[in-house]
């Protein structure tokens, strides 16, 4: 057995201290060590975007990072947004515009869009298209995802 390394990571405002193998992927750590299953794994090599999380506020692919690299850092996953009872406006918009089907790609897309809308609260359709270009969705054909993000930007800027 490889030696274990002690790490301290803040995930969704909770501090976790764990001992992990150096080769453990951050995506596996989030899912299987912390039980936060909302972060999905679609390819394990950085191509699909399903595993996107916020790492110190930046969207990154958690399948390309080792858990040990997250030591001392702050992570946000989809579980940090809304709950089924109180959806985040972005999640509401996805529901209203039918921006998801199987929902497997969705957490990664939401976590890509959250910082995007923070930086660019009134994006154009093209800008949205570019922003989600690295996230693969097999179900929707993207049009309704783009509509969802547009609707979310309106909701969020009108403070609803």
């Amino acid at each position: 057995m490889a030696q274990l390394i002690k790490i301290k990571v803040t995930v969704n405002d909770t501090v976790y201290e764990r001992e992990v193998e150096p080769r453990l992927l951050l995506s596996d750590f989030i899912r299987h060590e912390l039980g936060l299953f909302g972060t999905h794994v679609g390819c394990e090599h950085g191509m699909c975007g399903a595993c996107t999380i916020l790492f110190d506020g930046e969207p990154v692919r958690s399948c390309l990072i080792f858990a040990v690299q997250a030591n001392g850092h702050e992570i946000k996953t989809v579980e940090s947004l809304g709950t089924p009872e109180h959806l985040h406006p972005l999640q509401e918009a996805f529901n209203e515009k039918h921006g998801l089907q199987c929902g497997f790609c969705t957490p990664g897309i939401l976590m890509t869009v959250v910082p995007f809308l923070e930086e660019n609260p009134h994006p154009s359709e093209d800008e949205i298209r570019e922003a989600i270009d690295g996230n693969i969705c097999r179900c929707t054909g993207y049009e309704k995802i783009i509509e969802s993000v547009q609707a979310a930007s309106e909701k969020m800027s009108s403070g609803k």
Partner: peptide, 21 residues
């Protein structure tokens, strides 16, 4: 009609195969 299943999927609460422990 808006989808009933979305709430769980959107919040990461829906249980997929690899979420089974």
């Amino acid at each position: 009609v808006l989808r009933l299943e979305d709430k769980h999927l959107l919040t990461g609460r829906a249980k997929f195969c690899d979420d089974i422990v």
